[in-house]
Design a protein around this nucleic acid. Structure first.
Lengths: 117, 117
DNA sequence: CGGTATCCTGTCCGATACTG
DNA sequence: CAGTATCGGACAGGATACCG
């Protein structure tokens, strides 16, 4: 049993999923590995996410101190950049493992298809 | 864009989350790394999961060919064992990374607390 | 022992429209 | 450009009771 901020987690794995679980967080973070990204850049990488959801997920990641939000202009059009924090960067090895396995799974399913057809 | 079984994924990370996302799947798999486990053993490891949810998650993992379900008795009391499949074993490095980061995050939050108090 | 059945709640997340 | 506001549907997951 682990405790962070008075919240109880039955397993160290639960802790991680609390931070990067959900449909989009890991994907957002994956794209931030290679460097800072603007809001619209992220949207282009994830064409099927809605503005609202992207906005919410970014806000949560910011609250968890995983990413940093930096505003470069005072008046519209705004220019906002998102970056991994130092804490967020500790996630990189894991994010790469997650991505690597995803690719492996896709490859495998292709092979299966080829064998069947 | 990746496609498995006619389902579209915008990113390789999405593929992985499709398999191990959710509140419990990664936790179940983490406990299966060290070897086969019975239904009630898993429940003891995760005291806060409900029977229904554990049952559902196990069934989904079985459908995804990540775990294997083996029944050893014909009449009650039943004896059922869950094991990682060969495909499921490919997840191990990632699962260990996820667990490792969870522990790291807990340690870090402790440090922060000590610094504050 | 290893589950189902039933019911119910919360939350995630999408669609759409609007704004400084 | 980078969001917010509002509404609503789907589904994950909890509580409890029961079964082969």
């Amino acid at each position: 049993m682990y405790i962070i901020d008075d919240k109880h987690y039955p397993c160290c794995t639960t802790v991680t999923m609390r931070f990067i679980g959900g449909k989009w967080k890991a994907v957002i973070l994956y794209y931030l590995i290679e460097g800072p990204k603007r809001y619209n850049e992220l949207r282009k990488f994830m064409p099927t996410i809605t503005e609202r959801t992207l906005s919410l997920q970014l806000k949560q990641l910011e609250e968890d101190n995983i990413i940093n939000r930096k505003v470069y202009t005072k008046k519209p059009p705004l220019m906002v950049e998102y970056t991994l924090t130092e804490f967020g960067e500790t996630l990189i090895p894991m994010l790469k493992e997650i991505a690597r396995w995803g690719i492996e799974a896709v490859e495998k399913s292709k092979k299966v298809k080829e064998e069947i057809s």
